[in-house]
């Protein structure tokens, strides 16, 4: 039982890492075509994430793998349930992944514009889909007693899940803009990122609050005190992040928007606990940490492994960020080899 709780928390930690890190690189990717028409500016914007995006994406891959190992029923039901949605996400991520590599390999402006479009598409679509998935999971889906999804693709969409998707999108776009203000060196670009961040921040606040309201009518998240506190805190620090950006304090804005993402994820997992996938047909059909987990043996092996490797991963990823800590200049962006 205790190990199942440990793994529930670990999965939450992996998703926190994923939403925090990919949050800003989805954000940067999504804003790429809208911040500047100039090719060199775009190269600089991209250069803030090119060395790190792949390492960030591994957080998602690890979360998926860890879910498979610790809660195989959840992995099975979830991935089969979201079949077409995941196909769309994979399609987006495929284009995004190769676009980072392909864009700089030709001088032609049309070529570069095309791959920038792919990066934006590949960032915006997954951001929305994760928001939809998260809201769907907590609202509940028609899952039967055999843990099998009985609905279709359209059952994944509701007003609540669309609002959730847009809330995720705008929070990530804000997070990306905020990241750009602390990673770029060109003052006019920073100013543009900040202005865009302000716009996205306002939209994000609207959808976030709307989502909080709908959460009350669609889910039982507020039955959990921890989830309620975390979600309210998330909203509060996100508003504070916006204030900081308005005051041109990029660093504080980025830290606060990171915290907002962390708190939102905590609220989501706390609201779910001890369920991981909620069944809308019958509460007894929900997938929980007890009925969906691996055997105690697998969990204990994986716990040992996680205790050894998660800290090591953190150390070298932090080192990599430290290595590339300097603000990006036009010159940096040109040194594509």
């Amino acid at each position: 039982m205790e190990l199942q709780i440990v793994w529930f928390i670990l999965i939450a930690v992996l998703f926190i890492g994923f939403f925090f890190l990919e949050g800003f690189d989805y954000g940067v990717g999504g804003l790429l075509p809208f911040l500047s028409p100039d090719d060199k500016d775009r190269s600089q914007i991209l250069r803030t994430i090119t060395p790190v995006w792949d390492g960030n994406e591994v957080w998602m891959i690890t979360a998926g793998g860890a879910l498979f190992a610790s809660f195989p029923h959840v992995y099975s039901t979830m991935f089969a349930t979201f079949y077409l949605a995941l196909f769309l996400m994979l399609f987006a991520l495929i284009l995004r992944g190769v676009a980072f590599e392909f864009r700089g390999r030709r001088e032609s402006l049309g070529w570069r514009r095309f791959w920038e479009g792919c990066i934006a598409f590949g960032s915006i679509v997954p951001a929305i889909l994760w928001g939809v998935a998260v809201t769907d999971l907590i609202r509940g889906l028609p899952i039967n007693e055999k843990m099998i999804y009985t609905g279709g693709f359209l059952d994944l969409l509701s007003i609540y899940s669309v609002v959730g998707g847009l809330a995720f999108l705008f929070v990530f776009l804000y997070h990306g803009a905020s990241y750009l203000t602390i990673r770029l060196s060109d003052t006019s670009l920073i100013e543009r990122a900040r202005a865009m961040g302000m716009k996205m921040g306002r939209l994000a606040v609207i959808f976030f609050v709307l989502c909080m309201v709908l959460t009350a009518t669609n889910t039982d998240l507020y039955h959990s005190a921890l989830a309620t506190i975390a979600l309210v805190l998330a909203a509060a620090v996100f508003v504070a992040a916006n204030v900081m950006l308005a005051k041109r304090n990029g660093k504080a804005s980025f830290i606060l928007s990171s915290l907002a993402i962390v708190f939102t994820t905590v609220a989501f997992f706390a609201g779910l606990f001890p369920r991981i996938m909620v069944s809308s047909l019958n509460p007894a059909y929900s997938l929980t940490i007890t009925n969906a987990s691996s055997s105690p043996y697998t969990l204990s092996v994986m716990t040992v492994v996680a205790c050894i490797f998660v800290p090591i991963v953190l150390i070298y990823q932090i080192w990599a960020y430290y290595l590339f800590r300097k603000r990006i200049t036009a010159q940096d962006a040109e040194e594509e080899y």
């Binding site: 690890t62 793998g65 860890a66 691996s294 697998t298 994986m302 996680a306 998660v310």
Partner: peptide
Amino acid sequence: GAPLALEAL
């Protein structure tokens, strides 16, 4: 799942 998670980690 275990080797897959280990592969990522």
